[in-house]
């Protein structure tokens, strides 16, 4: 077992063994979560603050539940309406919060790099719950766990990621993680929704969805933000659905046992056909949500172990 990180800011700094460590521990937490009594105490006495500068229901709930199941004292702070609007700089906010001695800080922010910035200024472990278009590491980890449980392995798979790659932190974290674990990644979407320099990512890029889905093991759909549909990036919702929406006919090009994933919330009829999303034989979307709690428990558990170890070597009382 190895996990040497102080924070979980992204997939980029993680070594493949560290990813495996998180996933192995998360597997144990899946078992715990399925029991009647879902309570652990590895985070007992620790304070977890969820700071969301951007609206989120699912991710915030998942982190809250993960912390509570492991015995942490969890506080949620909705930062959209708070001091940041009064002109306080992000670093000032971080310093204020740091003075309250949190142990785990879960942060989501609309700007790339904001969580890194916060992490430089606080003494606790920081978990990135999504920063701008940069990274969303726990999403990639829960996707990885879902794939590993469905496919029995997390290497040498053909995985297609479809949709708005350019604006998606989920896509970035997944490309990094699945690349580190040595899978073949295909990106599918219109060129206006592909990030610049995509040719250097070590991935295949497809503009034809049927060709892109040929023989893949996993189809990951991404959410298309409403504000991208106004003719700025794609001509219209219906043209997008026609070319890049996942339906049974397009999915038929994938392997017969290919699974369908989506980070949610879904736009049925825009990026994915509603019936397909609900097809329990193909869609693992509900499993993704379940794995989310387990992966977040594992990540916080590992970070808390490192935090305690660092504090005891520094001679500071835990």
């Amino acid at each position: 077992m190895s996990f040497a990180q102080r924070h979980l800011l992204g997939i980029e700094p993680l070594a493949p063994q560290e990813i495996t460590t998180i996933l192995d521990l998360a597997d144990q937490y899946v078992a715990l979560n399925r029991r009647d009594v879902k309570h652990g105490d590895v985070l007992a006495g620790l304070t977890q603050i969820n700071m969301f500068f951007e609206a989120s229901t699912r991710t915030q709930a998942s982190f809250e539940l993960a912390g509570k199941r492991l015995g942490a004292d969890v506080m949620n702070m909705s930062m959209q309406a708070s001091s940041i609007k009064k002109g306080e700089t992000l670093i000032d906010t971080a310093m204020t919060l740091n003075a309250m001695h949190p142990d785990l800080l879960v942060v989501r922010h609309p700007h790339s790099g904001a969580v890194d910035l916060l992490a430089q200024k606080v003494n606790c472990a920081v978990l990135n719950a999504g920063d701008g278009r940069h990274e969303h590491p726990t999403q990639a980890l829960l996707d990885a766990l879902t794939i590993r449980r469905a496919k029995g392995r997390l290497h040498r798979l053909n995985i297609a990621i479809c949709g708005d790659i350019a604006h998606s932190r989920v896509a970035r974290s997944n490309i990094l993680l699945l690349g580190k674990m040595e899978n073949r990644i295909r990106l599918i979407g219109p060129p206006t929704l592909m990030p610049a320099g995509i040719g250097d990512f070590g991935v295949e890029v497809h503009e034809d969805m049927r060709a892109g889905l040929q023989d893949v093991d996993v189809v990951m759909m991404l959410r298309l933000q409403k504000e991208r549909m106004d003719g700025g990036f794609i001509p219209s919702e219906r043209e997008y659905y026609h070319r890049f929406g996942l339906d049974a006919e397009k999915l038929a090009h994938a392997k017969p046992d290919a699974i369908v994933m989506h980070p949610g919330p879904m736009n049925r009829g825009v990026e994915i056909d509603g019936t397909l999303a609900d097809d329990i034989n193909r869609s693992v979307i509900q499993e993704q949500v379940e794995m989310g709690v387990a992966v977040r428990m594992a990540a916080m558990d590992l970070l808390a172990r490192n935090l305690r170890a660092a504090r005891s070597t520094a001679g500071v009382m835990v």
């Binding site: 790339s112 790099g113 990030p195 610049a196 320099g197």
Partner: peptide, 9 residues
Amino acid sequence: GKFASLRGL
């Protein structure tokens, strides 16, 4: 380019 895309800027 690749770098800005990875950083999400």
